[in-house]
Structures are given as C-alpha cells and as structure tokens.
Design a protein around this nucleic acid. Sequence first.
DNA 1: CATGTAAGTATACGAGTGTAGACATCGGGC
DNA 2: GCCCGATGTCTACACTCGTATACTTACATG
Lengths: 222, 222
Amino acid sequence: MSDTAEPSSPVSRSGPQGPTPGRRRRDAAATRQAILDAAVAAFTRYGYDGVGVRDIAQSAGVTAMLINRYFGSKEQLFAEAVDVAFAPRTVIAGSGAQLADKTARALVARTAPEAEELGPFLLMLRSAASPRAAQIMREAIGRHAGRHLNEELSGTAAGVRAELMLSLQAGVWLMRSVLGTTALTQEQPEELAQWIESLFQVLVTPPTAASPRPEPGAGSGP
Amino acid sequence: MSDTAEPSSPVSRSGPQGPTPGRRRRDAAATRQAILDAAVAAFTRYGYDGVGVRDIAQSAGVTAMLINRYFGSKEQLFAEAVDVAFAPRTVIAGSGAQLADKTARALVARTAPEAEELGPFLLMLRSAASPRAAQIMREAIGRHAGRHLNEELSGTAAGVRAELMLSLQAGVWLMRSVLGTTALTQEQPEELAQWIESLFQVLVTPPTAASPRPEPGAGSGP
DNA sequence: CATGTAAGTATACGAGTGTAGACATCGGGC
DNA sequence: GCCCGATGTCTACACTCGTATACTTACATG
C-alpha cells in the first residue's frame, strides 16, 4: 500500500484523537481516492470475502460508512477496485519479438517470494470464489487485459492465444505466490524465466501449418 | 444454500422404508463419509470461505455439530476434503508420449462450460484466498499431485516442469471454468486442446541443449 | 423387555458482517 | 460574523459464522 494521505497536509489537528497521523483535510475527492487505494490493496491481499469494509475504511483513515456514501456498497467498491487493478498495470511486457522474453521475466520477478507485489492476477485469484466478484472480473478482463493482448497477438486464434497466455500467468501466480509450492519458489529465477518464456513462445509465434502434431480437422487456419 | 430441506419434519416413518436416500440408519462411518463427500462438493463449488458448516451439514443430512464431533473443526474437515480431492483423481492423464495429448484433452473436456465438474483445481482456486486453506493445499499438492507428476516427468528440472504443468492447468480452469472468459469458452474444444497440448509438449519433452533461445548461464542440459 | 451408550439434535453465545439512520463538525459563501 | 450544506462519525440492527454445552433418540446388548 502506498501513501493514501495528502503529504501536503501537516498535522493540523493537535487533538488526541485521529486514527492516522497526518489527517486529511475535508476533501471528498481525496478521501474517495484514499478509500479506493486501500480497497485495491486489501482486496488484492485478502480477496473479496477476506476483507471487511471496516478494514478498508481504517486503512484509508475513515469510518466504514463513508464507503457506502461514496461507493454505494462493498460490491460497487470492488468493481471500481478491479478496474483500477486491471487498467493501469500491464499484463504483458515488451512487444513483438521481445514479448515472450520480457513478459516471462516480469512474471518471475513479480511473483518472487520476497516481492509482495500487488497485481491484477493476485486480485483475480484471491477473489475467484465469489460468483459476483468473478463476473465483475470477467468483464474487466474483456475490457482491459484481453483487448490489449489481443492486439499484440494478431493472427490465428489471437483470442485463444491471448487468454492462454493470461491463463499461464495466472497459474504461475497461483502456484508461486499464493500457494508457494516448493519447486517454483526454489528454482533459480533465470532458469524458471526461460521455461516460461519457451511456453510463451509457442503462443506468440505459433506453429503455423507445420504443426508438430498434424491432427485432422483443426486446420489452424490462414 | 438454496435448496431447502425440512429436517424438522420427520414424517414419523417407522418401517424399514428405505427408498428415500435421505434417511440413513445410525452409522457413524457412513455419516462421516456423507459429511466428507458433501464437504468436497461444497468446498469445490464455493470455496473455503464460501460455505458454512451448516450448509455442508444440511447437504449431508445432519446437523452442523456433527461436523465438529467427527472432524474437530471446519479447518480439519477442509484438510480431509483436500486430501480426498487430490488423492484419487488424477491431475495428469496418459503417460509417456501420450501424456501431453491425453492431459490436454482431459483438461478441455473437464473445463467445458457444460461440465459442472468437481476437480482439485476448482477446489484450489476457490479456496486460494484463505491463507490457512492455502497452506493445507500446498502440503496436499506436494504429497499427491506434485509427486505423481514428478515421476512422470523425470529428467531435467522435473519439479519445475511438473509445477508449470499444474500452473497451466490451474490457469485454464480459472479462466475457462471460474471466470468464463469469452475466447476460451467459445473456441472449438479440439482446437483449444491442440494449443494446450503444444504447450504441454514443451514441458514433457523439453528442449535439451538445443534450446530455441540459447541464453547464457542456465544450462538446461542434464 | 430394560438399559447403557453411541449417534444425533437443539439451543445459545460471542464475534463478525454489511448497512441504515441519526448525529456531529468543519468550511466556504452571504 | 453567521449559517447551511457538505463531510465524516456513532450507534444500532438484522444477520451469519463457528462452536461449546446440554439434551434427546435409537440401537445393541443383557
């Protein structure tokens, strides 16, 4: 979690009360943003069902009821938080010939055990249990990540290749960051990145007609 | 959850009228098993935090307190359910040269939108938010799936390759079954299976020394 | 058939949830 | 300087959760 309060506001209130030092002046926009930032962090760390509005409110330095005032409900706050998590951050790195390479290395770096990263995949995984949250995230993926990756992977079955690339990334996030399985956490980052890169390469530069297994019926197209 | 059974209407059946599967004779082992089965189904569908012990108990036709009597706590029930979900079901299909092929096809079939499958990956994804559940699942993976797949993929970096294979499967489950993203749900199953198979192939028959990208340092050779 | 005991139920409690309504307080415009 | 609306808080409510205690019922055995 980054700074949620205005750094320009000094400790104007010398009173003993005040949950967070450096109290924010009465500023609706800043308060709303502080709540949203806290929500992204909390939902990413603990999932939709894992945090209460009181937790988020306390992180933002306000009371729980302000969430309902500014966002209507916890669900609507989550929807906005998902949009924030998916929109600015990139789910792919590099482009063209470097796409597989850069994306693999970024993935390994961000899922390192010591990283403590907040990323859209973590938010996705930790909130996958709630059906309503799942629907909100599906729409966000279609709107942001999927579209972006789709353009990069133009060509045959670009949509499938893009979503398979997202799938592998999500799976690595799950196994490495969330569950912390042994092999993925203990392997040398560089070697792990090479394995993942070679997988991405299959999707980025797909086997055209000369498929390794010429199956019938499924002409991989033009 | 939704289906409502009235446990308080015993209907006073006296004879050995057994056609209704609801009423079980007093049998500790059978009751315990019924609870466990219901737990696997419920945890898989709704995740660790998504079900209450009352839901599970009602599915099993008992009251919630029997769960504590037989399993000690909800957490211990979950641990046993995870063992059930991971142990008997296979996370890989086929072996040797057919491993990539069979596993990919099985994955596509089991994640089909109409499948309504219960599988370990679904349990994994839907319960990933809870840290305690995550630890329980990590141990189960190391005990069951990881070990099994490790033997099959003997060779260089078998552990990493095995867990990457699990990662991709988990990711596909997430995107296709849980989130239901468009491309993966609408693609022809056969073509999707071929894409996934070509990814598995990289892990099953890894590029030896003749790697497509000869990076320094990481000698993939045995 | 009476009975001890395992099998199962009923009730309750304390903590936690999201949220509604009433109340308090700051700050800018007349 | 005063006041009214915006901004934020307090209390409360109805609900669900996991689980501990006390109770009831059915079964096997004498």
